[in-house]
Amino acid sequence: MTRTWRRLTDRLSGKHDPEVLYEELPDHLAVPVRQWALQVVSNYQVVGVVCLRLRLPSTVLNSHSPGEALANYQDKSNPMIFVEIVDALLAALAEVRPFTAGRYNGATASDLCRQLDFILTEGGSAYMINPDKNGLCRRVDETLRQSLEAAVQAADKQTQGAGAHLREAFAAAYGISPNPSVAYSQSVKAVEAVANPLFLPKSPEPTLGAVRSTLDQGRNKYEMVVEDRTGAPAGINAVVELLNLLWHGQRDRHAGGPTSRPVTQEAAETAVHAAALLVHWVATGVIRKK
């Protein structure tokens, strides 16, 4: 869902700057999000799973109403705790599937996901429901999200491995607890999953680096479906350069070298979207032999 409504004073003043997104659980979001949680935690199995996974104190499950205790739980030392609870609730919904027609006012897991998505979007939260509907991730531009989903769908038609790696890369880059190293590594694996069978079908140990070298040395053997300025099929220079960028940018692949360093959050996000583009190109035949 894309938020298009703007407040009256902004419309009158002609202000079009992007709205500042809210971290944690600000006051204006607290009540609707906690009310949403109350619907979910009416299932005791979900409450137990969340308490176990987040290592919440026994006072929650020992309370007179564990569901209410969880929906209203606070921890002054951890301002992100309720965002983590919502994230865990979504995962439990996806796994336990406790909601069926006719129960809890007819709400289903899908209904509850749509309700939360509306609340987070309209309230300007920095978080959104992830593409797999089983947790939260940082809000990303709708165009970027759609491009990732298109790449995953194209990859799944060819090989499920690439799509799974892309999903993991996205979750690691944009999850509530980002892991840039995992995001970058999974991005590389996503491209390898679609490119290795195509460009290195007989190699016993195919890697992205080997794909890069094969295409670099065989630029005259491949072309793209898009045309260049002369009207002929374009060369694959852009593909090779994008592979170079992705391959050389993973600075934590080997330890102890003079240029080894941890992957930054910015580099991880760049890798995810570079991988999505490459996966989409390979999976849909944008790169072809002459």
Rank of each mutant, 00 (worst) to 15 (best):
A255R: 05
Q160W: 04
P233S: 11
A171L: 12
Y174D: 10
T259E: 10
F199P: 03
P197R: 03
T270Y: 00
A173Q: 01
A155P: 03
P197T: 08
P201G: 09
A193E: 02
V225A: 08
T214K: 13
Q217I: 03
G161V: 06
S177G: 03
Q250R: 10
S181T: 08
Q158M: 10
L242S: 12
N220L: 09
V272I: 06
E192N: 07
G256Y: 12
A172R: 04
T207G: 05
A164T: 01
N179A: 14
L200A: 03
L277G: 05
V226Y: 06
Q186P: 04
Q217L: 15
D252L: 08
V272M: 05
E227T: 09
R229E: 13
H254S: 07
L166T: 12
L243E: 08
K189V: 00
Q186L: 02
L215E: 02
A271P: 03
A276H: 05
G256D: 09
K189I: 03
K202Q: 14
Q158V: 15
V188N: 04
V239A: 10
A275C: 06
L215R: 02
H165R: 13
T214C: 07
S260I: 08
T207S: 15
L246H: 08
S177A: 14
H165L: 02
Q186T: 07
A183Y: 07
A274T: 14
S203P: 05
Q160I: 00
A274W: 01
E269R: 15
V239M: 14
V194L: 05
A234N: 10
R229H: 11
G257D: 09
G231N: 04
H165I: 03
V272Y: 07
E241G: 12
Q158C: 00
G218Q: 02
Y174P: 07
T259W: 04
P206C: 04
N220A: 13
V240S: 06
E192L: 06
V225L: 10
P258D: 10
E241D: 11
V240F: 02
G161H: 13
A238R: 09
T264C: 00
G249R: 04
L208V: 04
A154S: 14
G249L: 07
P197S: 11
I176S: 00
V240N: 06
K202S: 13
L242A: 13
L200C: 01
R212V: 01
K202F: 09
H254F: 13
S181V: 03
A193D: 11
N196H: 09
V194R: 04
Q217M: 11
E227R: 10
V182W: 00
R261I: 07
V188K: 11
V188A: 08
L242K: 14
G249M: 05
E241S: 12
A190N: 01
I236Q: 00
T270C: 11
H248N: 13
A271L: 01
A169N: 02
A190W: 01
A190L: 08
T159F: 11
A155Y: 14
